[in-house]
Design a protein around this nucleic acid. Structure first.
Lengths: 332, 332
DNA sequence: GATCGTCATGTAACCGGTTTCAGAGACCGG
DNA sequence: CCGGTCTCTGAAACCGGTTACATGACGATC
């Protein structure tokens, strides 16, 4: 069995209080005594138990993060940014993926019991009432890429401005008939993107319109299916997809059908995943790592009690133009 | 403040032992008493403290996983597979990324104090002596994608057979002068892959050779640089890269230089990341998720004491042929 | 009716730390 | 030489659970 604080105290001939003081060099201890304790601790290879310490301090020194999935670069980057900052702040990071878990709500609640606070990424993880109940219980919470709730901190990527920029880019290229691929009712992010597109069209001084094409999931297969539908009839000028995976699915199917891009049709995505670069996909880059990092900082403020009023951060995004819309100004 | 077991006991008019028994429905409690306790618990919204419980049980019910990075799909998938199985086994998962951390060794040791056991992924995370010291201390350990140590469990992906298959594939296509890109001294995985290539060449009934091209890092930039070097002189028949990122970097640079693939030169990678599919990269697919899942299961056996003798798992890999080597049998 | 076993529950020690408070000396000025 | 202050250390309570053991009630057995 590993040495405890009492073993060290006995060996050094002091009380456990003194050992505790030396280990966390809090109060003053006579150098001579300190040396004796340190010698005993080194001798016994004493490492203070986190459990004992945490119980006494009534804190976990750990943060949680809940996300739907880790495949695909989006969430992985968010988690990475989160972990980096949390570690800097001296906190461990607990992860919980809700994908394919039917007891996600319970799992999140269980996780909340093991952390000083947690971050919930994406609306596809747990229901709002779970979030509300956690918040009501006093759990420190930060929402990421999830519709803000007044009383709860949130971090989101800007959608509207980039959607407008993207749309103007397409209009500049002469595109007039757009098709937005994705279901705005599934996610507020998607709804905002669509909204930005529609606004840009309204503000434009040319006649242009956007059709909305709903899909089951935002994945490659659905993207391919959408292309299949359009191959029979006239292609629009551009497909504006709610995310990169949809767009990549479309690109693959279009290429297979021998449709030339960007002359016959243009395709855009959202996220700027790594594959988008190789596929030459015009898309919108999100500061994923920064989303996680910001969430970690906000959460730390909540936990440490530095701040009590909720904050809502909105991080900027950036249009990345590639060959799926124009050969003119390719960004490799 | 949240309710404790003593609050519940007082309200229900029983002792804390009885409450504990009800909460973990261990021993027999009279139904009537149980109902009283449950009512009180519900009333006070009592949730047993993990800290108290864990201290008493002297276990964390948490596992750790250490990896170098989470950007790029490789480690993310491993972590995902690990988390899924760990969650199934009722364990929380702590993560630790060592990238850009100069105190990685300490961080790993600190993490070990908070878990019942941990998985170390890749040799690029911490030194062998840290692993050895943890093992000596009795920490349950599983190594993933890291050179096996006799006494410590390990999970690795098969390298040799796939490297041979890959090489034979290139030989079949007529390639004779190969260049292996990557530094075999940095990682045993890379060394094994090179070894497989060399063996396949030796066994082949044609005259062929492989040159070894060392690189600083296994990333896209280095891949692009290697191409730059070769553009001046004669290109080999094929570049066999130690991973996909190198290969993708080469593909980009080759395409930019107007070199036609696969007619002028062939390129292969290793890992089968998502971008490889869009870049048409011939590569070797690793069962990344399964690596993580297997590690979680091995670790659970160690922690629960079901098994004491070390095991070394070797998971199969699979050659994926795409257009970077041949247009003949493209796998989309 | 005394003895015994069983069942339900309570008492108290324990897990390994932190922290409050009090006390023992050392030191100082008058 | 004495009272007061300061510095260092120890005793003990506490964090919130688990669990070995003790206890008491009750029914069964002879």
């Amino acid at each position: 069995m590993r040495a405890t604080i009492r073993d060290v105290a006995r060996q050094a001939g002091v009380s456990i209080a003194t050992v505790s003081r030396v280990m966390r060099d809090s109060e003053t201890v006579r150098p001579e005594t300190r040396d004796r304790v340190l010698a005993a601790a080194g001798d016994l290879e004493f490492v203070p138990s986190h459990l004992g310490r945490q119980l006494a301090e009534r804190r976990h020194a750990a943060n949680g993060i809940v996300f739907p999935d880790l495949s695909g670069p989006y969430y992985a980057e968010v988690v990475l940014g989160y972990e980096a900052v949390a570690a800097e702040l001296g906190r461990s990071v607990l992860i919980l993926s809700t994908r394919g878990r039917d007891d996600a709500d319970d799992a999140v609640r269980a996780m909340a019991e093991r952390c000083d606070g947690l971050v919930v990424v994406s609306g596809r993880t747990v229901d709002d009432d779970v979030v509300a109940r956690l918040a009501a219980r006093g759990t420190s919470l930060v929402l990421v890429a999830r519709p803000p709730v007044d009383t709860v901190d949130s971090v989101n990527a800007e959608n509207d401005a980039s959607a407008r920029a993207l749309t103007r880019h397409l209009l500049d290229l002469g595109a007039r008939r757009l098709v937005f691929v994705g279901d705005p009712s599934t996610s507020p992010d998607v709804a905002e993107r669509l909204h930005g597109v529609q606004e840009a069209l309204t503000e434009a001084d040319v006649a242009a319109d956007v059709e909305i094409r709903h899909v089951q999931n935002l994945d490659e297969q659905c993207g391919a299916e959408v292309v299949g539908d359009y191959l029979g009839r006239a292609l629009p000028d551009a497909f504006v997809c709610a995310n990169d995976e949809l767009a990549l699915g479309m690109l693959g199917r279009l290429r297979a059908a021998g449709v030339d891009l960007p002359s016959r049709v243009r395709v855009t995505g959202w996220d700027d995943v790594m594959a988008a670069r190789y596929a030459g996909l015009t898309t919108v880059r999100q500061p994923m790592r920064e989303l996680g990092a910001t969430a970690a900082r906000l959460l730390d403020e909540l936990i440490s009690g530095t701040r009590t009023h909720p904050r809502h951060e909105l991080l900027p995004t950036q249009l990345v133009v590639r060959t799926s819309t124009t050969l003119g100004k390719e960004t490799p």
